[in-house]
Lab assay of single mutants.
Amino acid sequence: VDNKFNKEQQNAFYEILHLPNLNEEQRNAFIQSLKDDPSQSANLLAEAKKLNDAQA
């Protein structure tokens, strides 16, 4: 993981990586967004979790 991520951002990265119901395309999009703007990690994680739950 890129060293410019802080602890919260790293946690978001790993959580998104391991959400079971996202397809690869969705997962990659969230990860790319996280890399583009790490400050949005909490929002991105919340969105990813919502999508993950919706696809459960």
Rank of each mutant, 00 (worst) to 15 (best):
E15C: 15
N3Y: 01
L44Q: 05
V1N: 08
Q26S: 06
L44Y: 11
N23Y: 04
S41M: 09
Y14A: 06
R27A: 05
F30M: 06
D37Y: 07
K7T: 11
A29S: 07
P20N: 09
D53E: 12
D37P: 00
A42R: 10
P38C: 03
E8F: 04
N52I: 02
D36I: 15
E25N: 14
E15N: 12
D2G: 05
N6Q: 03
N11S: 13
F13Y: 11
N6G: 12
H18T: 10
L17P: 01
Q32L: 15
N21K: 13
N21A: 12
D53W: 13
E15V: 15
Y14W: 12
S39A: 04
F30T: 01
E25Q: 13
E15D: 05
N6S: 03
Y14N: 10
I31Q: 05
Q40Y: 10
A46T: 09
S41L: 11
A42Y: 15
A48W: 01
A42I: 08
E25C: 13
N43Y: 15
S33M: 10
K4H: 14
Q26H: 04
L44W: 07
Q10S: 05
E15P: 01
E25Y: 14
L19D: 01
K50E: 13
S39P: 08
L19S: 02
N11H: 14
L44D: 01
L19T: 01
K35A: 04
Q26N: 03
A56D: 07
S39D: 09
H18V: 06
A56I: 12
K35L: 10
N3F: 01
A42D: 07
K35D: 04
F13I: 06
Y14D: 05
D37I: 07
L34S: 01
D53I: 13
A48S: 08
N11Y: 15
K7M: 05
K7Q: 10
D2E: 05
A54D: 11
N43M: 14
P20F: 14
I16Q: 00
V1M: 10
Q32K: 06
V1R: 03
L19N: 01
Q26C: 07
F30G: 00
P20C: 10
L45Q: 04
Q55V: 12
N6D: 11
K49T: 08
L44H: 07
F30D: 00
K35W: 12
I31Y: 09
H18M: 05
V1L: 10
V1P: 11
K7L: 04
E8G: 04
F5L: 08
D37R: 05
A12K: 02
N3R: 03
L17M: 11
I16K: 00
H18Y: 07
K50S: 11
L45V: 08
K35G: 07
K7N: 11
A12N: 04
N23R: 11
A42L: 14
L44V: 05
Q55K: 05
D53V: 07
A46C: 10
N43A: 07
E8P: 02
S33C: 10
E47V: 15
E15G: 12
N28W: 15
E47R: 14
Q26K: 05
A48M: 01
L44F: 11
K49G: 04
E15Y: 15
K35R: 14
A29W: 15
H18C: 07
N23A: 03
N23C: 12
E24H: 10
N28L: 14
K4T: 10
V1C: 10
E24P: 07
D37V: 09
I31A: 14
N6V: 03
Q9W: 13
K4E: 14
S39Y: 12
L51I: 12
E25D: 11
N52A: 06
P20E: 10
F5V: 10
K7V: 07
K35T: 05
I31G: 03
N52G: 03
F30L: 05
N21W: 15
L22N: 00
K49P: 00
F5I: 10
L34D: 00
N52W: 01
Q55M: 10
Q26I: 07
E8W: 04
L17I: 06
L22G: 00
I31R: 04
N43K: 14
D53N: 12
Q55T: 07
D2M: 04
A48F: 02
D2Q: 02
D53F: 15
Q10W: 14
L17T: 08
Q10N: 04
E47I: 15
D37K: 09
A42S: 07
K4F: 10
A12E: 02
N21M: 07
R27T: 04
L17Q: 10
K49F: 14
N3G: 07
N23D: 06
N28K: 12
N3M: 01
I16T: 01
A29H: 05
Q32I: 14
L51P: 00
S41H: 14
N23T: 11
Q55W: 04
D37F: 05
K4A: 12
A46V: 12
